[in-house]
Simulated scan of single mutants.
Amino acid sequence: MYALLFSEPALDRDVVRVATREGIFSSPLVRACARGDREAIRGLLIGFWPFVQAFERAIDQRVGHLPLRPLVERFGQSRVKAFFGEAREAVREMKDEEGSHALLWIAGAEELGIDLNAGDYPVFGAVEELIRASTSADPVEFFSWLAGVEYLAEELSAYLCHAPAFTSAFPSRRWLWGEAHTAHDHHGPSHLEIDEDLARAYHPSTDPAVVAGTLAANIGRCVQLFDIAANEIAEQMAPQLQAA
């Protein structure tokens, strides 16, 4: 089981969650999804699919390739030897879980008659930026970006899974992808806690304020790109929202 390297979080997670929630609630696309707008829901599922798919692959590329030297220099070889196996296993579990989440995203789309594997769907500019950022070679940026995606997924899921008009749009009356991100049944640290812990471990500074500033900036940029992407998707796939 992964044991966190730091006993205290680098960020005030309640503050980050509020900021993430504000970004989600301000999105015309997401609000329309909550109202049960079929075109908006279709836009959400198709427009963000390239990122959902790429996110799993990005984590897969990290499995077995976490740099060891920065951690040895900081924490010592004996401590890192035990930790490193746990870190690799934690990242591998994230990859496996994101793979299952991608299948749930596909299943939700299929309920609405959308075949994400067969369609030639566009990749919007901000979605491409989200994908590029998730493949960063810098472990600080990579893991803080993963944390940002976790914040987004949890807050988006909490909002839409509690919107009856949204869930009623699915024949099953459930959005399984969202439910997977609102169920907190991890034994040990959550993926969010592990992401922030690893980002902090790889950060060259030991000043908590400096580390917190870096993580907050990366997470904030992730949330901002999600908002921009949602607006781009709305403009192209649910233009009726522009007049709402």
Results as ranks from 00 to 15, higher is better:
I194D: 04
V123S: 13
G119V: 14
A183Q: 09
G125K: 09
L156I: 12
A126L: 05
Y121G: 14
L156H: 06
E155T: 14
E141N: 12
W177S: 01
A133L: 15
D197R: 08
S134Q: 13
E129F: 00
L156G: 00
A147K: 08
A163R: 03
P164G: 04
V123E: 15
A137M: 12
L176N: 03
V127M: 03
F170M: 09
S190P: 04
A165K: 12
R132V: 15
G178A: 06
P139N: 06
W145F: 14
V123P: 09
A158C: 00
R132E: 15
S134Y: 07
G148F: 04
L176R: 13
A153M: 11
R200A: 14
P164T: 08
E179F: 03
V149F: 12
E128C: 07
S168H: 11
E141V: 06
A153Q: 14
A158W: 11
W177P: 00
W177A: 07
E193A: 13
R173Y: 07
F142R: 12
S144G: 08
L152D: 01
A169I: 00
P204F: 13
G148V: 03
E141G: 00
W175K: 02
S168E: 13
Y159M: 08
T182N: 07
R200Q: 10
S190Q: 10
A165G: 00
W175T: 06
P122G: 07
L130H: 02
V140P: 04
Y159V: 07
S144P: 10
G188I: 07
E196C: 09
A169D: 03
H187F: 14
P122N: 10
H203Y: 07
L160R: 03
S168F: 05
D185C: 04
E141K: 13
G125Q: 13
S157G: 10
H181Q: 12
R200F: 06
S205H: 09
T135D: 14
P171W: 09
L176M: 09
S157I: 05
E196T: 00
Y151I: 03
D138N: 15
Y159E: 11
F170H: 04
R200W: 14
E193M: 04
I131G: 01
Y159C: 02
E150K: 03
H187I: 08
A163H: 01
S144K: 11
F124V: 01
L198P: 03
E129T: 12
P189G: 07
L160N: 05
H191W: 08
E129K: 15
S190W: 12
A180C: 05
A153H: 09
A165H: 09
C161I: 13
F166L: 07
D120Q: 14
R173Q: 14
P204L: 11
T167K: 11
S134I: 03
E154L: 03
T167F: 05
E150L: 07
S172F: 04
C161W: 01
E196M: 10
A201N: 02
S134V: 07
V149I: 15
P171V: 09
S157H: 10
Y121Q: 14
A163W: 03
P171F: 01
T167C: 06
Y121S: 15
L130S: 02
I194K: 11
T167Y: 00
V127S: 02
F166H: 04
F143M: 12
A180L: 05
A165M: 05
A169Q: 09
E150D: 14
F142E: 10
S205M: 12
L130A: 05
V127R: 00
F124K: 00
W145E: 08
L192I: 08
D185F: 07
G125A: 12
E193R: 10
F170K: 04
